[in-house]
Amino acid sequence: MEKSSKNKKLVIYYSFEGNTKLIAETIASDIEADLLELKPQKELNSKGFMKYLWGGSQVMMKKKPDLHPLDKNPQDYDIIFIGTPVWAWTFAPPLKTFFSTVRFNNKKVALFSCNGGQNGKTFENMKAELEHNDIIGEIEFFEPLVKEREKDIHRVKEWTKDILKNL
């Protein structure tokens, strides 16, 4: 059965270690949304402390890594969920590339993030990039792959259900 053009849903995300991917795939599966993974042409290979050093320096230098071509157009969707890991208290550089190259307006947008410490200004900075859209929700997770996986899966399902119910 083809999805109705009304309220077509898309989940856009970047994931470095799999935490954001877990949440994105849970949302997409639960609400029957399409999935768009942002994939840098050259992924960071750092592990341990070095990943924080390299990732944080990319954020501070406002890097915009080249992405593989997108296989979905956000303009074709009504409701968009956007997820990111938190790097240096904001969204990851692949989202910076996405926001600078893909424009969409008047969409209903929900934001989610995964972090290992603090969310910082992640949502505030994302909202600034999405100023001509209606932000309908935001939620953060603390390392869902290793901390409280089942609880976080339940939380995100309840969150998406509430968002869609209130539209």
Rank of each mutant, 00 (worst) to 15 (best):
N105M: 11
F49W: 05
I79P: 08
Q58T: 00
T26D: 11
I82Q: 10
F112S: 15
D134A: 04
G137W: 08
K127V: 13
M61A: 10
M50N: 01
V156L: 10
S15E: 11
V109F: 09
R149K: 14
A128K: 15
R149W: 11
V11R: 05
L167C: 06
M61L: 12
N45H: 03
E131S: 14
I139T: 06
V146M: 10
P144A: 08
M61R: 11
F112L: 10
F99N: 09
F104K: 02
K72Y: 02
L53P: 04
K107T: 09
K72D: 01
N7S: 12
E124R: 07
E32V: 05
E158P: 00
Y13S: 01
V59A: 02
V146F: 08
M1H: 07
M126F: 02
L35G: 07
G48D: 14
I82F: 13
Q75A: 13
E25K: 01
L95K: 05
N7K: 14
Q58C: 03
F123D: 09
A33W: 12
A128Q: 13
G18E: 08
D30L: 09
A110P: 01
K64R: 14
A92P: 12
N115V: 00
F91K: 01
L164W: 03
K42R: 12
G117C: 07
D71T: 10
G55D: 06
D66R: 08
